[in-house]
Design a protein around this nucleic acid. Structure first.
Length: 427
DNA sequence: TCTGGGGTCCTAGGACCC
DNA sequence: TCTGGGGTCCTAGGACCC
């Protein structure tokens, strides 16, 4: 049996932890650049504030009901996430915990008798709340997909379920399948949902679970779809995965605070994003061989509806994989010259590092020149200082100093748990 | 005026090889 | 008139996730 543990309205809960007067008050958290709404408290949901909706469109509603609004504060969320995951590892042993996202983890519960699962799930929920202040919901079932389904139902009906739902009998599974619309199944996105309903008249998970594996393979993305159908039938087909220690691709991309038309601003932004991506690369002891850069133009199109704008990208392959910021910034900035067109306005840029290999020489390498080893020490010093002081105390000149393009983040709360100078004060 | 960021996996199709 | 079969590797693009 598997469990999925999912933090309730995670980002909003993090904000509330340090602002207890907001308990029971509507709260929302915005995406980067204060663009969209990415987390809502139950009260905000009830008011009709929509998930992933643009902030400016929800603003009248938000102001009318005095909803508390926060820019996203990833330092805070990341740290609280770590505390939640540590609690789970402490309870079940680290080999039974798979961190799936910042606010979700799968647990493998095979060692427990089925009749104890309800109590265990309850204990998990209570311990996490006790230790971290974060409320979670727990769904338990024979497969990961069914566990997600259980979790969703637990959350939907908090009073009755107390945020715990265990599908330990055939009847409970069928009932849960029946109650789940096809678009709410984990692994069915917008496209497939439309196709299932329009082409096949499949509206709920029970109907989908009665389809054949071949159907899944043919119409829901090959082996992925086949696996999905099997999981719905109760045949576990997604095992626990090892924690993804090394990423295959590392990206840093941002919207600009306002549209940018100056190539030098774009170069500064790209240099900054490259520095950040290189930091992530070094954290996993990797070195990258491919540097890609993309820019997104601001659409001149005034037609109704939201236009995603055109993305233009290009990449370069380095002769030798590297993790040194300076060696990555140079090619990245050169790529901007290839992409930039004078007279156009840009709203976003990004850097991606791929072709990632383990940086063998990280332990020191006899054949490495002395200067390389010096550079490596320099990089690790920069990382340490930036980490312990504040972001970007030390940066490369190419990143610029004025940063006119920097994203908006006007409503961010303090980084209470990761910065001494922003420690929460109680008066 | 104003719509995020960071990932994964899979498939199809082309280039190339023997 | 008529021109194989099997494999690998790479890339672009689509779908999904939170």
């Amino acid at each position: 049996m598997y469990a999925i543990v999912d933090c309730n309205n995670f980002y909003c809960s993090c904000e509330r932890l340090f602002k207890p007067h907001l308990d029971k008050q509507p709260v929302v958290v915005l995406s980067n650049n204060d663009g969209c709404i990415i987390s809502r408290s139950d009260e905000a949901k009830k008011l009709g504030v929509e998930m992933a909706g643009p902030y400016f469109m929800a603003k009248p509603l938000i102001e009318k009901h005095k909803v508390a609004v926060f820019s996203s504060n990833y330092n805070l969320y990341g740290d609280l996430s770590w505390r939640v995951m540590e609690t789970l590892r402490m309870l079940l042993g680290k080999h039974s915990v798979e961190v799936y996202s910042v606010d979700e983890a799968f647990l493998k519960l095979d060692i427990f008798p089925v009749e104890e699962l309800q109590a265990i799930a309850k204990q998990v929920r209570e311990t996490v709340e006790q230790n971290t202040g974060i409320k979670v919901s727990v769904g338990v079932a024979p497969t990961k997909v069914l566990a997600k389904l259980a979790n969703r139902l637990a959350k939907k009906n908090k009073e009755q379920t107390k945020c715990v739902s265990v599908l330990d009998t055939e009847e409970k599974i069928i009932e849960a399948l029946q109650k789940t619309p096809v678009e709410d199944i984990w692994g069915v996105g917008r496209q497939y949902a439309v196709k299932l309903k329009e082409d096949w008249c499949i509206y709920d998970a029970l109907q989908l679970s009665n389809m054949s594996e071949e159907f899944g393979h043919k119409y829901l993305g090959g082996v992925v779809g086949k696996r999905l159908i099997r999981e719905l039938k109760g045949i576990s087909s997604r095992e626990m995965e090892d924690e993804l220690v090394s990423k295959k691709m590392i990206a840093t991309t941002r919207m600009f605070g306002s549209p940018v038309g100056d190539i030098n601003d774009i170069k500064e932004a790209v240099a900054t994003y490259t520095s950040r991506a290189a930091e992530k690369l070094r954290r996993q002891n990797g070195a990258a061989k491919i540097v890609s850069v993309f820019v997104v133009t601001k659409e001149q199109n005034h037609s109704l509806g939201f236009n995603r704008g055109g993305t233009i990208s290009t990449y370069t392959t380095l002769p030798v994989a590297t993790s040194f910021t300076n060696e990555l910034i140079k090619p990245a900035v050169q790529l901007v010259d290839k992409l930039f067109e004078r007279g156009k306005l840009y709203k976003k840029a990004g850097v991606m590092l791929s072709g990632i290999v383990p940086d063998e020489s990280v332990q020191g390498n006899l054949f490495l020149t002395q200067t390389k080893n010096c550079e490596r020490k320099l990089m690790s010093m920069i990382d340490n200082i930036n980490f312990s002081q504040r972001d970007d105390v030390l940066k490369f000149a190419a990143s610029g100093t004025t940063r006119d393009w920097k994203m908006r983040q006007e409503l961010r709360s303090g980084r209470y748990t990761t910065r001494w100078d922003e420690l929460h004060e109680v008066h």
